[in-house]
Design a protein around this nucleic acid. Structure first.
Lengths: 151, 151
DNA sequence: GGAATATCGTTCGTATACGAACGAGGATCA
DNA sequence: TGATCCTCGTTCGTATACGAACGATATTCC
């Protein structure tokens, strides 16, 4: 395509193979942005995708240590701390020390958090449906399978 | 699966269809995280994916107004401003007022930015290759095509 | 011309995301 | 037992990401 307009008309071809708009990373970032946008519309802007991941994980399998919870929801120790702190402030989650390991902090849903999560489950399913809506049914499974290989 | 451990043994089945680990959004977030990790390893931690997106876009098509640049690189006005500011501080980019529109700020690569971008192009291609490495050749095109439909 | 409307860039606040460093607690093994 | 190493949670700093609001400039339409 074009040379940068500030290039003093250097005739060097450089690398014309590279097109930003065709790189997986760039496309994936846009797809993720659309997904988050859909998430916010359906779930309401008072809950973020990462906060929901924590609630859903705790709902499915019960409490766990904070760092383990982070690993299960794809967040590092620093990130999960902030997420848990904000859920604590809203009393959707509660913590207690692990009696078997003085280093660990056990995080679990509060009773209010259980109700809240249960109420949101149908909406969370809708988020996935709407996100995948542009694809044909068989394409949806394909996409998920391919993305799983890229983790 | 399990009920939350803090649930007072409520026998209600709730929604057992929902498994966080199977939701596109969650899987896509993990795939994106791996991609960014690969990006950092190959490109070096002094440049972020979004900063690279700006450099690559300016290299391909020359300068443009800041907000348009943001749209082309999938960032809103607030985000692109921060990215441009940081690139300005490193003198990889330069700005000037648009003579035809007093509201616009034209952003373009500096001469140093042109050289810098050109040198990084091969590495950027490698980032895409490594990201897609787990997939068979024909799967790569499929994934990209499907992701494009989700923008 | 002038009012309504739209766009541009900026700023603020909040929420991921993560590298790096730190102290406290656990596990291993000589 | 004690030294070493690992893990856990915490804090700091930096960089996206984006909604919301703002003033300045353009455009549209009467």
């Amino acid at each position: 395509m074009a040379r940068p307009s500030t290039a003093a008309e250097t005739p060097e071809p450089a690398d014309e193979n590279y097109d930003l708009a065709e790189q997986v990373g760039f496309i994936m970032r846009q797809a993720a942005q659309r997904h988050v946008s859909i998430f916010n519309e359906i779930m309401g802007s008072d809950l973020t995708p990462t906060q929901w991941a924590v609630l859903a994980r705790l709902y499915q399998d019960g409490g766990s240590s904070q760092n383990l919870l982070g690993r299960q929801t794809a967040m590092d120790a620093a990130t999960i701390k902030g997420v848990v702190d904000r859920l604590l402030k809203r009393k959707l989650v509660q913590t207690k020390p692990d009696p078997e390991d003085g280093r660990r902090l056990i995080v679990e849903l509060s009773p209010a958090g259980i109700d809240y999560t249960r109420e949101l489950l149908p909406k969370a399913e809708t988020v996935t449906k709407v996100t995948l809506a542009p694809l044909a049914t068989n394409q949806r499974a394909t996409l998920v399978a391919l993305l799983k290989q890229l983790r």
